[in-house]
Design a protein around this nucleic acid. Structure first.
Lengths: 115, 115
DNA sequence: AATTTATATATCTAATTATTTAAATATGTA
DNA sequence: TACATATTTAAATAATTAGATATATAAATT
């Protein structure tokens, strides 16, 4: 999930995904639309591809890119799972910290911010 | 959404969220559990707080942290909205690129990889 | 008041990540 | 075969981000 989150966590890459949602595009079209250099786009496309968020298909000298809908759906599922997996995520209140009862607990356990 | 994604896109921060899901914790407890320096933890907590993924509450000299469940749910909603918002995300096939018909389109539009 | 404890900020260094320029590969065309 | 086009890879630089050390603030304790 980490790779997918990181792949999504960039504005250029989000914009690329939006472009590809409307239609598949050759790399040169993406370059023109985004306005970054060709190698920069290639880099972002590589990250999106490795994250499984887009697919590519070579036809002749042109490489066409399109959304990997399964990958996107899976990311959403993973996110949902992660958030649900935060036990108690849907239940009432998380337990209070033992520090509430004993405010000196950290010091007693040897926690020393000076060192 | 970008800030929240970036906040989630770090393993230490994911682990902090997992800790806080089980119970609220004072900062010193988090430091002991994660094993990074105190300022490093303070940094990550700040990022999570700014992203709206955790809350903090000061009691005496101790700052207690806990999950911001609303923020987490909202992130999931935003993600879902973004993915749905990729038009055609749920429909059959994205349009083919015009390059399919005219492979020289990029060159004609003035795209020159040399410059 | 002085000291200890818990946390935050400031500053600097190191590590990642993004971007560019330049060169390489691969495909199609004259 | 030579050349132009589309894309990738490599190498270098710039920008962001993570982390550590040192310092500052704030609250409790003595």
């Amino acid at each position: 999930m980490l790779n997918r989150l990181k792949a999504l966590g960039d504005l250029h890459r989000q914009n690329i995904l939006k472009l590809l949602a409307a239609q598949e595009m050759g790399a040169c079209e993406i370059i023109q639309a985004i306005g970054l250099s060709q190698p920069a786009i290639a880099h972002h496309l590589k990250i999106l591809k490795q994250a499984g968020l887009i697919n590519s298909e070579k036809e002749g000298k042109i490489v066409f890119y399109n959304l990997n809908k399964d990958g996107l759906k899976e990311l959403l599922k993973e996110m949902d799972g992660f958030l649900e997996g935060l036990s108690c995520f849907s239940c009432s209140l998380a337990k209070p910290s033992p520090l509430r009862q004993n405010p000196n607990l950290c010091a007693e356990m040897g926690f020393d911010p000076e060192v």
